[in-house]
């Protein structure tokens, strides 16, 4: 019975020595905290807070009202309207496709399910410029679907349709992924319970499934909104940024910078930045709510 006594003693001395060293340890702890925090704040300052502040100062310098007033020019208004229409369509389409697609991928078994699952995730991994190029190769003069373009008369390259297709491509994953994740987490038992209680498929969907995924869907749609408003590379390549025709809010900024129209560039950038801050706070709210309890 000697062993436990020794180890207990050992523990006591260890605790005692720990207390003894507590003062020194505390200093070390504060030092470490300080060091890590400084690194992190310098990092965030250099890439996030600093640039954000600089933008604010610059805007104050240029004059917020002047900057916004420049958006009343016809081509700026046109670009804004184009972005709004594209975003609206992207949100509506993704609400439907994301929900149905997630249900199919998570709840159903069919041939090609794994492929759809993988494809739906891909747009996040591909450079926007390549997306634009890929669609040019598909719908361009020598493309596989050029016959379709001639037959229907619907132009894609350097046309509004191209902007839409590019926007739909880059926004595909957001709702589908979010909704699929929550469906997986929640499981099927509530839906089964509804079935045993006499609910039909539509009743199950609208009264059980949809309420359960609503915050995930909302989060996905906010991301869709942010991405379609902010998409630049794909719409630039496929749309060509033709003023008054295929220019969106972002390609408008690009063109304004190239033409040294700093005022209009900052005006549009301010509008987009404000929108994204608004979006960000909605995103944070939806993120808290979408967690499965």
């Amino acid at each position: 019975m000697a062993e436990p006594a020794v180890s207990a003693l050992d523990q006591v001395t260890r605790v005692a020595s720990r207390d003894h060293a507590a003062a020194g340890l505390l200093d070390g702890q504060i030092l470490r905290r300080g060091a890590i925090s400084s690194v992190v704040f310098i990092y965030l300052g250099a890439i996030l807070l600093g640039p954000l502040a600089a933008m604010g100062v610059e805007l104050a310098h240029v004059g917020v009202l002047d900057a916004l007033r420049s958006l009343l020019a016809p081509d700026a208004l046109f670009a804004l309207r184009t972005s709004l229409v594209l975003t609206t369509i992207a949100v509506v389409v993704n609400a439907v496709v994301g929900t149905l697609g997630a249900i199919a991928v998570v709840r159903q078994r069919f041939l090609g399910r794994a492929l759809v699952n993988a494809l739906a995730d891909l747009p996040l991994a591909i450079s926007p410029v390549m997306i634009g190029l890929a669609f040019i190769l598909l719908f361009g003069r020598e493309g596989w679907l050029s016959a379709l373009v001639t037959a229907t008369g619907i132009k894609v390259v350097f046309a509004w349709t191209g902007l839409l297709i590019a926007t739909l491509f880059v926004t595909l994953p957001f709702t589908l992924r979010e909704v699929a994740y929550v469906l997986e987490e929640i499981g099927t038992s509530e839906e089964e319970a509804a079935a045993t209680l006499g609910a039909g498929p539509w009743q199950i969907f609208f009264r059980v499934t949809l309420p359960n995924i609503r915050f995930a869907l909302g989060y996905g749609l906010l991301m869709t909104l942010a991405r379609s408003l902010g998409e630049f590379g794909a719409v630039l390549v496929l749309g060509g940024s033709i003023s008054g025709q295929t220019q969106t809010a972002t390609t408008f900024i690009h063109a304004a910078i190239e033409e040294r129209q700093t005022g209009s560039a900052y005006g549009m950038a301010l509008l987009l930045a404000l929108t994204s801050v608004l979006l960000l706070s909605s995103l944070e709210w939806a993120k808290r709510r979408k967690k499965v309890k």
Binding site: L44, G230, V277, L280
Partner: peptide, 28 residues
């Protein structure tokens, strides 16, 4: 700050580039 970490998800990349250019450009 925790919320701002998500800003790059919400802000157009082009605008992000402009922000950086404003801070680090020759005029600043």
């Amino acid at each position: 700050i925790s919320a701002l970490v998500d800003l790059p998800l919400a802000i157009p990349t082009l605008v992000a580039g402009m922000m950086l250019a404003t801070l680090y450009g020759a005029h600043s």
